[in-house]
């Protein structure tokens, strides 16, 4: 557990010193979301209809944008090699890094989401569900994305590649995340969707660290 805290603290400190990363992710999220009214027109009822989907798609893209860097810099400067050689289990270290990634990108997105929901004219009934759904969904995005980020280490054109690998795997989160908000907007209970998202989160929590660690070991071999 010490190792988990150690790597989490270091990654948070790195993110804090470098700063720009989480700001960039949130800025990207906001800019992408604002593009939609330009595309579909400013009519309030159309925007309200598509708001939950737009917010989720933008969040997906923003979360993906920062993925490439999760392991890439550590891979390039030799840190990853030393992490695999440290006496702590690599799976735990991976979990720590993913946790740091979520805290620096997922959490700011959750805070930014209601603001964008207001701008897209979404009904207030959906706000709470949107935030809960994102609270469950974004950690899953970080976990699944970490697998892709580890697989592309050492590959050419890593950035584009990671989106091709990861986006299809994000589809279930998108479907249930947007579905939960839509249910709430219709006044139906969103419990079913949120529970399925919880199941997806638990499954990825159980499987992703192992798959990611496996991919990292391949990369540093």
């Amino acid at each position: 557990m010490n190792a988990f805290v150690a790597i989490l603290r270091r990654d948070l400190r790195l993110a804090l010193r470098q700063g720009a990363d989480s700001v960039m992710v949130v800025a990207f999220f906001i800019v992408t979301t604002t593009l939609f009214p330009f595309g579909v027109g400013p009519e309030a009822n159309i925007l309200a209809r598509i708001a939950s989907g737009v917010i989720w798609v933008s969040a997906l893209l923003a979360a993906m944008l920062s993925l490439e860097r999760v392991f890439q810099t550590d891979y390039e400067d030799g840190t990853l090699e030393l992490l695999t050689l440290s006496p702590a289990p690599l799976e735990l270290l991976v979990l720590g890094k993913v946790c740091a990634h979520w805290l620096t990108t997922g959490l700011p997105l959750i805070i930014a989401a209601p603001v964008m929901a207001v701008m897209l004219n979404m009904d207030q009934d959906g706000f709470g569900t949107l935030m809960i759904a994102m609270l469950i969904g974004t950690p899953a995005l970080s976990l699944i994305g970490a697998i892709g980020a580890a697989l592309i280490l050492g590959a050419r054109r890593g950035g584009v590649l990671v989106s091709l690998l990861v986006l299809p795997l994000y589809i279930p989160v998108l479907i249930f995340g947007a579905g939960a908000v839509e249910a709430a907007l219709l006044g139906i209970s969103a419990q079913a969707q949120l529970q399925i998202m919880g199941a997806i989160l638990l499954l990825s929590l159980a499987a992703a660290p192992f798959a990611t660690a496996h991919a990292i070991r391949q990369a540093v071999e």
């Binding site: 697998i147 697989l151 690998l165 299809p168 795997l169 589809i171 279930p172 479907i175 249930f176 399925i196 997806i200 499954l203 499987a207 798959a211 496996h214 991919a215 391949q218």
Partner: peptide, 17 residues
């Protein structure tokens, strides 16, 4: 490794779709 991860995901994707 990706094929395996994908295979775990295929039923989930199918179900969600």
């Amino acid at each position: 490794a990706l094929a395996l991860v994908g295979a775990i995901n295929v039923p989930i994707v199918k179900f969600s779709v």
